[in-house]
Design a protein around this nucleic acid. Structure first.
Lengths: 289, 289
DNA sequence: GTTCCGCATGAATCGATAG
DNA sequence: ACTATCGATTCATGCGGAA
């Protein structure tokens, strides 16, 4: 039975048992956060979250190739006016499990949920925790390089006009500092802060993250033909990103409804790609070892 | 002996013993990171960092007022290709010590221009951990409001009169509810992501952070006349920020050299302020409890 | 074909109220 | 005392229809 390019219904803890060791190139997932999405996932309590997650991350560790990477999108919530520590505990326990905590990317969500409270501001960022099995892993940095123009865009226009005035930075401060470094250079490397808005306009499906988010990491950590796993596939966003980048995908979800939604989206994309692009060509042609 | 508006040479662990309980309104500091500043602090090893820090944070807890706040600027470093966990451990241990981990702000260092490492990108953010003694603490949110986004500029001002007042027409959707709230508003509350360039024009001193960073938090958590403590004052940036905002300051550092530098900078600023602004006026006049 | 504008919708959080 | 539910608060974005 072929296990690849499918959306599989079930708890990833069980489903992944069928997968052989070292068979996945990259894992990207955004598990249901503690006490969130109760309707679909039943709502794991903050205090029980680590215990719930660890047996699953043990499976992730087993199926991931030694050179592979696991990127976990997660954010702790405020409980009784205080940030809960289940994410911190999770990192420490995963290290004991054998994972290496390589990096923490920050996803800056410009359009975070509104609201006003006496003792905190709007929570506008999430963690993207990078874990690895080894010190050496596959990383194709060239695949996510930004053209110099776009880099300037990223820093200046992508932050929108208002942000420029908001942070009251002196004009050119830091920007002018070393501009000579980039002049004449075509592309530059990004940083570990990712600016991306959440998608909220989609009526058919409500994705937790925009497709650009998994796309960015898939480009960074895999090459064409590699296998991408999302054990909490939800509305299928990670699979969509994988298909668009000519990677293989495996999506798992306990919810039959979400599985069907994912299957709809992926098959739609696949059709589109077969029609438009008969030749399976690498989207990312500049990746290198 | 007056303990306020001074730079005191010594280890904060010892110096703070002289301070009474509940005497400080706000603590902001960027301690020497593990293995950094070897000459001055003997280079605390990552594994020993938590043990080194805890007796000091115990003093911070003691001298801080119940309604006060402690903001800690810290970032774990990578050791052997992996993120060290001393910051995570520190948060957990400080909670056991009695601190509440209220929030984690992200300082996005905008001008950290791209660098290249084989396994990671340029690190362009830092943690700003907010700790409190109680659930309720002083926070003056109005003092740090930012200009409203393009969104309202373009659209909100052009809404018809009927739109402005249709409070009850739409049910559920947040917008139809109380649109009049936004009309005429020019400022909105910020988020927990702070965009700020690092200072680059440092002449004599190399400040770890721009003066705007402590200024932002001093505005947020204190009012005119409050006492701001930085137990690792370094080049004096926190004290400079406090003086400019008409707050009292206490700076501590083990390095006589750093103390002298801080004294130079603070006295320079104070002269300037006495000359220009004879009346000690509240900078933040719209703070509310 | 642009540009403009109306509008729904978010991994939210707190405090009060109810069982 | 402790948990469950509900109402109030707030702002950036992308879609689709209109000018």
């Amino acid at each position: 039975m072929n296990l690849v390019n499918q959306i599989i219904q079930g708890d990833c803890l069980d489903v992944l048992q069928q997968f052989p060791d070292n068979s996945i190139d990259f894992i990207f997932t955004s598990p249901p956060y503690a006490d969130q999405r109760k309707k679909t996932y039943g709502g794991v309590k903050p205090d029980e979250y680590v215990g719930w997650f660890l047996p699953r991350s043990e499976q992730f560790l087993r199926v991931l190739k030694p050179t592979g990477t696991f990127v976990l999108n997660i954010k702790e919530r405020a409980v009784n006016g205080e940030r809960h520590i289940y994410v911190l505990e999770l990192i420490m326990k995963m290290r004991e499990q054998g994972w290496r905590w390589t990096e923490e990317f920050i996803w800056h969500k410009k359009n975070s949920y509104p609201g006003k409270w006496p003792n905190r501001f709007r929570d506008s960022w999430e963690r993207l925790l990078q874990f690895n099995k080894q010190k050496k892993f596959n990383m194709y940095q060239e695949a996510v390089m930004v053209p110099v123009g776009d880099w300037a865009k990223d820093r200046l226009t992508k932050l929108s006009e208002t942000d420029k005035t908001r942070d009251e930075s002196k004009v050119g401060s830091g920007f002018g500092k070393n501009i000579s470094n980039w002049v004449g250079r075509e592309k530059v490397y990004p940083t570990n802060v990712i600016h991306m808005a959440t998608e909220c306009g989609n009526k058919n499906h409500s994705a937790a993250f925009p497709v650009d988010l998994p796309s960015w990491f898939i480009n960074l950590f895999t090459r064409s033909g590699d296998v991408v796993l999302d054990p909490f596939i939800g509305s299928g966003t990670t699979a969509v990103a994988a298909i668009k980048l000519s990677r293989k995908y495996v999506g798992i979800d306990v919810s039959e409804e979400f599985c069907n939604l994912s299957r709809e989206r992926t098959s739609g994309i696949q059709m589109q790609f077969l029609a438009v692009e008969p030749k399976s060509e690498a989207y990312n042609s500049n990746g290198s070892a």
